[in-house]
Design a protein around this nucleic acid. Structure first.
Length: 501
RNA sequence: GCGGGCAUAACUCAGUUGGUAGAGUGUCAGCUUCCCAAGCUGAAUGUCGCGGGUUCGAGUCCCGUUGCCCGCUCCA
């Protein structure tokens, strides 16, 4: 999750702006709830966008589940609250944080509380009790909460833990770094998980979360899938789905959003074979992007240094793409060891061990995770495809998608709107439509229609012309080279299916 | 969360010291058109992001708010 910024790159930044503008105009991406002023960090996929996204997911799904050793899964977004305790998400992301307005230092509230001496806490308490600017109701609350700790200032942490009292207590507290008194922002929880309630009543006991990652749905189903599919180690479980993180900041168009889609595959291996499979998937996953036409020189691995690893990981690598704003993570490959299954065994009380027939041993498998961002890949494929070039003094904008990813596979165009050409073109459209996403366009000069398709990334245009009337052939115009060949109408589907592979 | 910039038609933008909202592109209808966006004719579209305020009068000035972009912070 690192993010390198490339400075002084106005030109490159322009490309994001151009792509965002094109994305809206052509119907790839719209801002969520735009007519109401937009919703921070949320985006909608339009007609072309949803096709591109679907194609990316489909290629990923094939790359994964068409293997004999990977099974598919689609787990619920809502999961038992204990899952997030076991995963560490509850523990690691519920800390209220505050900033000193003066020196901008940021503190976890409990750590700030620890940094204040017991004597000082007692002083704060006295100040609060005597203060004339505090409402009687809050004073009563202070007395009620602190009465049990009158003899023991150490327990006065409660002043900072209670959400009603914390702002009052902070007003009497000095910043440990700069010493300024009471200049803190209001405490806010930085837990990244979206909360909601199961059932109609909003109360503490029924709090549940929107999943912040899809991985846990796979972990808790490990033995279900293994048993049902009769897979033996090593094998994987693949899943595509939405995940939600209540990010503090959203950023860079689709790069950091609060709602996003993941394409995750968790590969379960013998503990001794973890390094081997980590390397295997690292290599395999990079190839996925280059096979779909992404520029190899804009892709790289970014290994996480050993001392910066997440609590669950033994080793980790990101596959990064060189976005116009710098290198950014598209996919993470992690060796999660036996951490996740071990924790779920501990928290659920259900054994998560796998019985290895060969060695006659029972053990918790290690997990190699490949976790790709569908939304981020979408953005990378879109930006990577974007090209501007000069053709006869004109600027041509063309999206050079790999044919497998192109939203529209072919456009059918009558050269002119007469002499029976539209009728023939309509017939071709009807014949192709059951097999391919095609588009019919007869409006304006043919050159203009070609350019419209270039902007949509359509790899082929089929043009019905005078010669068609004579010999039943059509012009097949290729997007990138703009070259034209003639193809018999009868052979069109076969030729296209071959070219689009 | 902090600091800075921006917000006018679908897109890119203009709009002088406050005085009835514009251009280009695109879109649509018709004509024209035999291969790479600029032919002809016509048409539609904006409570100038939203909410207040100042003023006889606000796209323009002030305050707030939302969104986008940049930097910092954050990103198990």
């Amino acid at each position: 999750m690192r993010f390198a910024i490339k400075k002084d790159n106005k030109n490159q930044q322009n490309i994001v702006e151009k792509v965002v503008s094109l994305a809206k105009r052509k119907g790839f991406v719209f801002q969520s709830s735009e007519i109401y002023g937009g919703l921070n960090g949320c985006w909608d996929y339009g007609p072309l966008g949803v096709e591109l996204l679907k194609n990316i997911k489909e290629e990923w799904w094939k790359a994964m589940t068409y293997r004999e050793d990977v099974e598919g899964l689609d787990a619920a977004i809502l999961m038992h609250p204990k899952v997030w305790e076991a995963s560490g998400h509850v523990e690691n992301f519920t800390d209220p944080m505050i900033d000193c307005k003066q020196c901008k230092a940021r503190y976890r509230l409990d750590i700030l509380s620890d940094a204040i001496s017991d004597k000082k806490k007692g002083k704060i308490l006295r100040a609060l009790r005597e203060s004339e600017s505090i409402e009687e109701g809050i004073k009563e609350k202070i007395r009620e909460l602190t009465r049990p700790f009158e003899e023991n200032n150490d327990k006065l942490t409660v002043l900072f833990e209670n959400s009603a009292l914390a702002p009052v207590a902070l007003a009497e507290t000095n910043c440990p770094q700069c010493g300024t008194k009471g200049e803190f922002t209001t405490p806010r929880s930085f837990n990244l998980m979206f909360k909601t309630f199961l059932g109609p009543v909003e109360q503490d006991g029924n709090t549940i979360y929107l999943r912040p990652e899809t991985a846990q749905g796979i972990f808790v189903n490990f033995l279900n899938v293994q048993g049902a599919s009769r897979q033996k180690l090593p094998f994987g479980i693949a899943q595509i789905g939405k995940a939600f993180r209540n990010e503090i900041n959203t950023k860079n168009f689709l790069f950091r959003t609060r709602e996003f889609e993941q394409m995750e595959m968790q590969y379960f291996v013998k503990p001794s074979e973890d390094d081997k499979w980590f390397d295997f998937w690292k290599e395999t996953r990079l190839k996925f992007y280059t096979d779909l036409g992404m520029s190899p020189d804009k892709l790289r691995y970014a290994d996480h240094p050993q001392d910066k690893l997440a609590h669950y990981a033994k080793s980790a690598t990101d596959i990064e793409y060189l976005f116009p704003f710098g290198w950014g993570e598209m996919e993470g490959i992690h060796n999660r060891t036996d951490f996740d299954l071990g924790r779920h065994e501990e928290y659920s009380g259900k054994s998560q061990k796998y019985f290895d027939e060969e060695s006659r041993e029972k053990y918790i498998p290690f997990i190699i995770e490949t976790s790709a961002g569908a939304s981020r890949s979408f953005m990378a494929f879109l930006i990577d495809a974007y090209h501007e070039e000069e053709v006869k003094g004109e600027n041509r904008v063309v999206l050079r998608f790999h044919p497998k990813l192109a939203p529209i596979k072919a456009a059918i165009l009558p050269l002119v709107n007469k002499d029976g050409m539209p009728e023939i073109a309509k017939k071709i459209e009807a014949d192709l439509r059951p097999f391919l996403k095609v588009f019919y366009d007869s409006k304006g000069a043919v050159g203009r229609r070609y350019r419209r398709q270039d902007e949509a990334g359509t790899p082929y245009c089929i043009t019905v012309d005078t010669q068609t009337l004579e010999d039943n052939t059509v012009t097949l115009r290729e997007r990138d080279s703009m070259e034209q060949t003639r193809v018999k109408i009868d052979e069109l589907l076969t030729v296209l299916l071959e070219k689009l592979r």
